[in-house]
Every structure is written in structure tokens, then in C-alpha cells.
């Protein structure tokens, strides 16, 4: 475990905690895309099936269980507990436009044609685009609450830090995974526009608003 990988994991953990706290403290999930959260739950469920087949470390197991549990908890908060505050009219991205192409791609481009490996590949591809309904929602409403911006920043930084971790591991351990790298780069690139707005607006104390 190198410092980039650990920072990436911490950033990911922080993103989830920020989101859960925002919803819990404000008793509202306004501005949050339930569809992105459904896609993330699908990502963790399909990726961490190896919990049943291989043990890596207590850290690894604990993080996997937390990611799965927190993703379903978030869905529960959005669609059940605080559903009156869910902004469904602005959450109109079609999930099947992401899930179906990604499923086909996972069957075609993978390391090994076995059920677990195809599901892992599916989850890597799906994760790279799972934030699109959320970004679409922000662009549709033209703004995001500051706390939502912090959530998106931490979530975007997580994969960016993983990329640095992969460069490090390639140089010092000789390991690399093209599927993870390409998907990770796609994922990070999708956040670039948001990163720019975050640095130029949110960090200067302004709310994130998009030009009309």
C-alpha cells in the first residue's frame, strides 16, 4: 500500500461520509442524483463478490463491506426515508444508456471470460461513468450546494489518486492493468470540468453555479 493508494481510499471514504452526513443533517437529498447512487451500488455489488472467494486483508474486507453497505444506505435515504426531498424531476438521465453498453463492453473486453471476472470488468467500466446522472443533474439545475461540491470533489480525487498509484506500482512493482487504467482515466476526465469550477468558485467561497 503506497501513499497515493491510501489517499485515494481516504478520499473515497470521505466522499461517502460527506454525502451521508449532508443527507442526514439537512434531512434532505435535494440535488443528489438517486440514479448515480443506484449505479454505484451496482458497481460495488458486482466488484466485491470476491469477498466470498478470496481474503486479502482486514482493511480490504472492511472497506469493501463499508462501500457496499453505505451505497445501499444512501439509496434507502434517497428513495425511502427522505423521498419527499428527492429531486426526481431533475434526475432524468437514463441509466440503461450506461448499463447496457457497459455490459456489452465487459463481455467483449475483459481479462478472462469467467463470471466473476466479467462482473469485475463490468463494475470497473460502470464506475467510470456512474457519476454522469449526477453531473447531468448539476448541469440541468445549473448549480450545486457547496456540500455537494465537496462530495463530488472528494469522489473525483479518489480515482485521480488511484491513477498516480498505478503509475507508482508500474515503476516500483511492475504491475499494471490496462482495463483499470483506461477506465480510471475516463472517470477522472469526466470530473475535469467540475474540478475547474470547484477550484475557481467553491474554494473561493462561492456556490457552484454554471453560466446560463
Amino acid at each position: 500500500m503506497n501513499v497515493f493508494r491510501l489517499s485515494g481510499d481516504v478520499s473515497h471514504l470521505l466522499a461517502i461520509l460527506i454525502l451521508l452526513m449532508k443527507i442526514w443533517k439537512t434531512r434532505s437529498c435535494a440535488g443528489i442524483s438517486g440514479k448515480s447512487q443506484i449505479l454505484f451500488a451496482l458497481v460495488y455489488t458486482t466488484r466485491y463478490l470476491d469477498l466470498f472467494t478470496s481474503f486479502i486483508s482486514p482493511y480490504n474486507t472492511a472497506m469493501k463491506v463499508f462501500f457496499i453497505a453505505s451505497s445501499y444506505a444512501t439509496i434507502y435515504l434517497i428513495y425511502l426515508k427522505f423521498k419527499a426531498t428527492y429531486d426526481r424531476n431533475h434526475d432524468t438521465f437514463r441509466m440503461e444508456f450506461l448499463v447496457l453498453p457497459v455490459l456489452v463492453l465487459a463481455f467483449v473486453v475483459n481479462h478472462d471470460f469467467t463470471p466473476l471476472e466479467i462482473l469485475w470488468t463490468f463494475s470497473i467500466y460502470l464506475e467510470s461513468v456512474a457519476i454522469l446522472p449526477q453531473l447531468f443533474m448539476v448541469s440541468k439545475t445549473g448549480q450545486a450546494e457547496t456540500i455537494t461540491s465537496h462530495y463530488l470533489f472528494a469522489l473525483g480525487m479518489y480515482r485521480a489518486l488511484y491513477i498516480v498509484n498505478w503509475v507508482y506500482r508500474y515503476y516500483f512493482e511492475g504491475f499494471y492493468d490496462l482495463i483499470a487504467i483506461i477506465a480510471g482515466v475516463v472517470q477522472t476526465v469526466l470530473y475535469c470540468d467540475f474540478f475547474y469550477l470547484y477550484v475557481t468558485k467553491v474554494l473561493k467561497g462561492k456556490q457552484l453555479t454554471l453560466p446560463a
Binding site: R5, D9, H12, D50, S54, I56, S57, N60, M63, K64, F67, H111, D112, Y162, W166, R169, E173, G174, F175, Y176, D177, I179, A180
Partner: peptide, 10 residues
């Protein structure tokens, strides 16, 4: 196995 030792990642 194509995933060169990165199975420990999240």
C-alpha cells in the same frame, strides 16, 4: 490471469 497483482485494490 490478466490482472497483474492488482486484486488487492478496491
Amino acid at each position: 490471469d490478466g490482472r497483474n497483482g492488482l486484486k488487492d485494490e478496491l
